[in-house]
Simulated scan of single mutants.
Amino acid sequence: MAQALNGKLITVFGGSGFIGRHVIRILAERGYSVRAAVRHPELAEHLQPLGAVGQIMPVAASVRNKKSVERAMEGACAVINLVGILYESGAQKFDSVQAKGPATVAEVCKEQGIDTLVHISAIGADENSPAVYAKTKAAGEKAVLDAMPNAVIFRPSIVFGPEDDFFNRFGGMAQMFPTLPLIGGGHTKFQPVYVGDVALAIANAAENKVEAGKIYELGGPEVATFKECLQLMMKITHRKRFLINLPFPIARMQARFMQMMPKPMLTVDQVNMLKNDNVVSKDAQSDKRTFEGLGIEPHSMEAILPTYLDKFRPHGQYDAKRPAKS
């Protein structure tokens, strides 16, 4: 149940998404009014039960439209930008959403005198990356810090949780197919991070409980390869599937066709991203720009994955006590 409102408003761009709903729940519990700035407010009604009546207000806004950004931020004491895309579709291009969009949000913060800006990027953001996703993430970071040097930037590794697009996707594939692909042999390393831990870090930063002007890298307690992640998923879901090596050239060829679909399962850009490990850097560790430096103990995959992957077991969530099956 939400606490009594504290009279302060926080605007969350991309609030209806995977990370957004967890951030908004925490902010509502702490008594903030939340303006969820989203492209389609009618699709954000699921957020309102997370707070008291009138506490969470979905509003129409796009980071590609400065006027809508200005309206969404009026009266806010802090702004959180969670907007990002995994693939391009229609007017949603990497450059406009992940590079120019953050620049617009930061500029409006500066114009409106809002001192607190929290921006979500990703591990792997790199202006020299062959992946457009990573290039535009890096461009967005630079634009934010140019306009708002005291902004807080978080770079999470792959984020997992009940609505994630990684373990849920491969859990669903394991239900339908006898094999699962190991792109590039499955050697890419990840440091999967629980969405609730990421949301807590974001909420703390919005309350100025985090040292500003820094880029933090967020990874969970375990480093695991792509292959090890799939093996863990199969262990939890009680399914045995053949893991087939899919070399990068073949994966790119398949991705060229898949990315023409409305919601592609794989794109060339994603294949390029998988060529590099997605883990917290040594620099971030030594500078304590990590969960450790934030005073947050991250949850393990083993502690969280069974709470939502049980639906992919042969007999669903009631299969918890059954032995593993093929």
Score class of each variant (00 low, 15 high):
154 F>R: 02
134 A>W: 01
217 E>M: 06
61 A>W: 01
68 S>Y: 03
141 E>S: 10
103 A>H: 00
39 R>H: 10
54 G>E: 11
303 A>M: 11
122 A>M: 03
124 G>N: 11
188 T>D: 07
46 H>F: 07
47 L>C: 05
140 G>H: 02
9 L>A: 06
301 M>F: 06
115 D>T: 13
203 A>F: 01
326 S>N: 14
55 Q>R: 09
112 Q>V: 09
72 A>Q: 04
61 A>S: 14
35 R>H: 02
96 S>I: 08
186 G>E: 08
302 E>I: 05
51 G>N: 12
294 L>C: 11
75 G>A: 07
209 K>L: 12
31 G>F: 00
252 R>C: 09
246 L>R: 00
324 A>L: 10
125 A>S: 15
229 C>G: 06
22 H>D: 14
28 A>Q: 10
25 R>K: 15
131 A>V: 05
240 K>T: 14
127 E>P: 04
40 H>D: 15
309 L>V: 08
136 T>M: 10
26 I>F: 01
296 I>Y: 03
272 N>D: 15
222 E>I: 10
37 A>C: 14
119 H>Q: 15
16 S>V: 04
56 I>M: 08
184 G>H: 04
166 F>P: 02
208 N>W: 00
70 E>A: 09
24 I>T: 04
156 P>Q: 08
175 Q>S: 05
57 M>R: 12
170 F>H: 05
275 K>L: 11
32 Y>R: 07
54 G>L: 05
98 Q>C: 06
237 T>L: 10
31 G>Y: 00
168 N>Y: 05
189 K>S: 09
147 A>I: 04
228 E>W: 11
258 M>S: 14
225 T>C: 11
267 T>Y: 10
30 R>S: 08
194 Y>P: 00
259 Q>S: 11
322 R>Y: 07
315 H>P: 00
247 P>R: 06
224 A>E: 14
271 V>L: 09
25 R>I: 03
183 I>T: 02
54 G>N: 12
156 P>F: 05
225 T>F: 09
216 Y>Q: 10
227 K>W: 11
195 V>A: 07
42 E>N: 12
3 Q>A: 15
291 F>D: 01
37 A>K: 10
289 R>S: 03
308 Y>D: 12
132 V>K: 12
158 I>F: 07
93 K>I: 10
268 V>H: 03
178 P>R: 13
48 Q>K: 15
166 F>I: 08
74 E>T: 13
102 P>H: 06
175 Q>C: 10
239 R>E: 06
311 K>M: 13
167 F>K: 03
314 P>M: 11
49 P>A: 00
263 K>W: 05
28 A>E: 09
93 K>H: 11
3 Q>L: 14
271 V>Y: 06
190 F>I: 07
307 T>D: 14
131 A>F: 02
241 R>T: 01
269 D>R: 03
112 Q>A: 08
256 R>I: 08
128 N>I: 02
301 M>K: 06
204 N>M: 15
67 K>Y: 06
50 L>R: 12
108 V>F: 01
32 Y>M: 08
132 V>F: 00
